[in-house]
Amino acid sequence: MEKTNRSYAVSKSDEEWRAELNPAEYQVLRQAGTERPFVGEYTDTKTEGVYACRACGAELFTSDTKFDSHCGWPSFYAPLAGDSVEYIEDNSLGMRRVEVRCATCGSHLGHLFEGEGYDTPTDQRYCINSISMTLRPKAG
């Protein structure tokens, strides 16, 4: 994962992250990995609630902005608040992408794509790994 000069509200050593996260979570959240498509816990979830960072618990997305993109990962058209995520230019794999990270702890969440033609208010697709989030269902 690209290092930034930014300091985060939640900052832990590599050893602390490894102790708190299982190997698959660590690989995605702390090493900018990607889970396989169509296997994630939240890919097709319709449950109302808030999606929080699995590493630090910061609230990131709501079910209100989740949509069916059929890409194999949960998709959202906007974050919960503009400052809940941060963006890092990602030129790996021979393409230009925008990496999305948790603004509270710097964990990798997924990527942001624009201009794909989805019928959403923003024409943006936050393609987020299920394993990087925890769904907090709406009380009801």
Rank of each mutant, 00 (worst) to 15 (best):
E114D: 07
F61T: 01
F38Y: 14
L112G: 02
N5C: 09
H111A: 10
H111C: 01
G110W: 00
E35T: 05
C56M: 07
D14H: 12
E48Y: 12
R97K: 12
E41A: 08
P137T: 12
Y77C: 05
R96W: 06
F38W: 15
H108N: 02
Y118K: 11
T4F: 11
A55N: 09
G72Q: 09
D83R: 09
A19K: 15
W73F: 07
P23E: 14
G140V: 07
Y51Q: 06
E48A: 15
S92M: 12
Q124V: 02
E89K: 15
T4K: 11
Y118W: 14
L109D: 00
G82S: 11
Q31T: 14
R96M: 14
I88C: 03
Y51I: 02
R97Y: 09
L135Q: 04
T62Y: 04
N5H: 11
L21W: 10
R101E: 06
K12I: 03
E15C: 01
R54I: 08
M1Y: 11
S132L: 06
W73V: 00
F38I: 11
T45H: 13
D68V: 07
V50Q: 07
T34W: 01
L135N: 04
C105Y: 07
R6T: 15
G57H: 07
L135C: 09
A9R: 15
M133G: 03
S11I: 10
E59F: 08
L112Q: 06
D64P: 05
E48M: 09
A103Q: 05
Y42K: 13
A24P: 05
S7R: 13
V100I: 14
H108V: 03
M1K: 12
M95K: 13
A24V: 07
T43F: 03
C127M: 02
V28N: 00
G57K: 05
P79K: 01
V28D: 00
C56Y: 05
S84H: 12
N91F: 14
W73G: 00
A19S: 10
R18I: 07
N91G: 14
A55K: 01
S92E: 10
D90W: 08
W73Q: 00
V39N: 09
R30P: 09
E20Q: 15
E35G: 06
G117C: 09
E16H: 09
V39P: 08
C53E: 04
R96T: 08
A58L: 09
G72P: 13
L135V: 02
E15P: 03
S63G: 08
D123F: 08
S84M: 10
A81F: 08
G115H: 13
M1F: 11
V98P: 07
R36G: 04
Q31R: 14
K12D: 05
A32R: 00
G106H: 04
G94W: 13
A19F: 12
M95A: 08
E35N: 03
V10Q: 10
K138W: 05
S84E: 05
L29I: 10
S11T: 14
G82E: 15
R36N: 11
P37V: 06
R96P: 00
L93F: 15
W17V: 01
E99G: 12
K12Y: 04
V85T: 07
E15F: 02
E20S: 12
G57A: 10
M95N: 08
S13L: 05
C127Y: 00
V100G: 02
M1R: 10
P137M: 01
W73M: 00
E99V: 03
S75P: 01
R36Y: 14
A55I: 08
L29E: 00
T47Y: 10
T65K: 07
